[in-house]
Amino acid sequence: MNSAEEITIFPLQNELIKDINNTNDSFKVFGKIVPIFQSGKWSFEEKLFNETQEIRFPDDQLDWSQYINQEDKALFLAYKDTKSIGQIRITKDWNHFCYIENIAVKKEFRGYGIGKLLLSKAEEWAKQRDLIGMSLETQDDNLGACRFYVIQGFLLGGVDTLKQSYNPNIETTLYWYKLFK
């Protein structure tokens, strides 16, 4: 693939529902974020692991029709030709942020700007609804995703050490925010 210019992004329609979970590929876990709260601001350090693991989240099983032609939520799919290669699922949150429920790009299309295109689509959607920014959460061990969000202008805004208590592999949930200027 040469560039993200060959990509089209469509809002979810009934005929596209079959493609949603096609974008759910595994990803590498190679380090974690260690959050630091000092003088009222969050920062972080990175800690690389000695070994890399591949992780894949289970496919989401939602009523996808709830994301079609809705004012308060949407799902956009990225395609190269007729192949679904990425998705972003968003909702209008109570705090006037566009909450990103999920963003995924097929493994072989990562690094080509697809995630950035999907975030831009979400930002456009959010601004049309007069929202003040975008927010999302990651686990502390998803360093690749965290690095991506930082590059896209997200700031660490909070940490929760109890949310993932059922999962012994995840110590901390991180909350990221991008405010619109």
Rank of each mutant, 00 (worst) to 15 (best):
C98Y: 06
A122C: 02
K107H: 12
R110D: 08
S120V: 14
F109V: 00
Q87T: 11
E123W: 05
Y99T: 07
R110H: 11
A104E: 06
H96W: 07
E124M: 09
D130K: 15
R89G: 02
L131M: 04
K92F: 07
W94E: 15
E101P: 12
K106D: 09
I90H: 07
I100S: 01
K127W: 13
G113V: 03
W125M: 03
L118V: 05
L117A: 13
Y99N: 14
K121C: 10
Q87I: 07
F97R: 02
L131S: 08
N95F: 10
I88D: 05
I132K: 15
Y99H: 14
L118A: 02
F109I: 06
N95G: 12
E124S: 13
C98F: 05
I114Y: 05
Y112P: 05
K127V: 14
G111H: 09
I90E: 07
Q128G: 11
K92E: 10
R110G: 07
K121L: 05
L118W: 07
G115I: 00
K92V: 05
L118H: 03
E124P: 05
I90Y: 04
K121Q: 12
K107L: 14
E124H: 12
K92R: 11
D130N: 15
L118D: 03
W94H: 15
E123F: 08
A104Y: 02
Q128F: 09
N95P: 01
I88C: 03
Y112G: 12
C98M: 06
E124Q: 13
V105E: 06
L118S: 06
I100N: 00
N102K: 11
K116L: 00
H96Y: 11
K107C: 09
E108P: 13
F97H: 04
V105Y: 03
L117N: 11
I100F: 06
K121H: 11
F97C: 03
A104T: 02
L118Q: 02
K127Y: 15
D93I: 05
E124V: 08
I90Q: 01
K106I: 10
K107V: 08
K127L: 15
K106V: 12
R110F: 08
E108L: 14
L131D: 04
R89W: 10
I90S: 01
K107G: 07
L119W: 03
K107P: 07
R110M: 08
R110W: 09
E101Y: 14
Q87K: 13
S120E: 15
N102H: 08
R89A: 07
V105G: 02
K121G: 08
E123A: 12
Y112A: 09
K121S: 10
I132H: 13
C98W: 06
I132L: 11
G113R: 01
K92C: 06
I100Y: 02
Y99S: 13
Q128E: 14
F97W: 04
Y112M: 14
A126I: 13
I132F: 13
I103M: 01
D130G: 13
I100V: 14
L118E: 00
K92P: 06
D130W: 12
R110V: 05
K127D: 13
H96G: 05
E101S: 14
L118P: 00
Q128V: 09
A122M: 03
L119E: 08
L131G: 05
K121W: 09
A104N: 02
W125S: 02
W125Q: 00
G115F: 06
R129C: 00
K116C: 00
I103K: 04
Y99D: 10
R110T: 09
Y112T: 11
I88W: 00
Y99M: 15
